[in-house]
């Protein structure tokens, strides 16, 4: 079992120590560096690096913002990092090759997709114990739990389905077929609608939670970019309810989608092969991880414009922001 020393390689800039303590921090997992980069979201500068397990991908914060969970895919574990103590305090039995995960609103049940085993593993983060394992399709990837706590959904990339798991009984109760290679799922705050991106299909499906049927399909088209290169991955929904942001992978753009009309209102140029995104406090900025260019793009959401790119580690994948 892996247990790396949790020391932080701190690169404090002389003047930044005190202001950094109050600013929000973005945590970026670097898939091919086995590190997590820390970014001060006020100054938009890298402030430190944490050594983590092998091939870190999914990264989320507990709802109380005290704990950071990191999927160390090649170590077959989820690492638990205590933010206040600035050290690793344990691991969760995630099952093999954990990639993405989602935390139930109860702050206790973590739903983890095990890419190599066609399973979703449910872990109790307090007992650090496996509660259930659920058979899903081939290459489970995206995970989300509905804000009302009723549904856990998983996407399987090669089966091309969204699997609906009852969060009480941990049984798979329904499936929705979507376009090729579904990557990421995100619930609307009212839990009534689910957004699901299909990377190779090039679409985002809007799925009705009650009927589990695809209600609408969003297509993307960027001038000068071949449609095959438009590959939706990460999705983020703004707190004000107005826009959804869809990362388009090797198209190197983030699409801004109106959440009422489902029309794309803008494409924002970011770094190369954009994966996932996170908002800074009050949704002022959106930060994107760009796998191939190895950086994070900062988008000013008032202007819907990219304002800065920040160099991080190799193949940045996931991102979480702690206010």
């Amino acid at each position: 079992m892996l247990f790396r020393n949790g020391s932080i390689v701190v690169l404090w800039l002389a003047s930044g120590v005190f202001s950094a303590l109050h600013a929000a921090t973005a945590y970026v997992s670097n898939e091919k560096d086995n590190t997590v980069t820390l970014i001060d979201t006020e100054r938009m500068e890298v402030t430190g690096t944490i050594d983590v397990g092998q091939r870190p991908r999914g990264i989320i914060l507990s709802h109380d913002m005290k704990t950071l969970y990191i999927c160390a895919s090649d170590d077959d574990t989820v690492q638990i990092y205590d933010i206040e103590q600035q050290k690793f305090v344990g691991e969760l039995p995630s099952g093999a090759d954990p990639e993405q995960f989602a935390l139930h609103p109860d702050n206790r049940h973590l739903y983890i997709s095990n890419e190599d085993d066609n399973l979703v593993t449910v872990v109790d983060v307090v007992k650090r114990d496996v509660v259930a394992q659920i058979d899903v399709g081939v290459e489970p990837e995206g995970m989300a739990v509905s804000p009302d706590g009723r549904w856990a959904v998983n996407t399987s990339e090669t089966t091309n389905m969204v699997h609906w798991i009852d969060a009480k009984t941990h049984e798979l109760v329904d499936n929705t077929l979507v376009d090729q290679r579904p990557r990421h799922v995100e619930f609307e705050p009212d839990s009534k609608t689910l957004w699901a991106s299909s990377e190779i299909g090039g679409t985002v499906s809007i799925i009705d939670t009650d009927s589990k049927l695809v209600r609408h399909k969003i297509n993307f088209s960027i001038k000068g970019i071949h449609p095959d290169r438009v590959q939706p991955v990460g999705i983020k929904l703004g707190a004000d309810g107005r826009y959804a942001y869809v990362a388009l992978g090797p198209a190197n753009h983030v699409a801004v989608v109106d959440r009422k009309s489902y029309e794309v209102v803008k494409y924002i140029l970011v770094g190369r092969r954009v994966w996932h995104m996170a908002f800074t406090p009050d949704d002022r900025y959106l930060m994107t991880t760009n796998g191939v260019s190895g950086d994070v793009t900062v988008i000013d959401l008032a202007e819907l414009k990219p304002i800065k790119s920040i160099k991080v580690g190799r193949y940045p994948w996931g991102i979480a922001v702690r206010p």
């Binding site: 091309n160 376009d179 090729q180 290679r181 990377e199 190779i200 299909g201 090039g202 095959d228 590959q231």
Partner: peptide
């Protein structure tokens, strides 16, 4: 018909 087959294109 489209097939996702690990080549980045359908």
């Amino acid at each position: 018909f489209e097939l996702a087959a690990y080549k980045g294109r359908k």
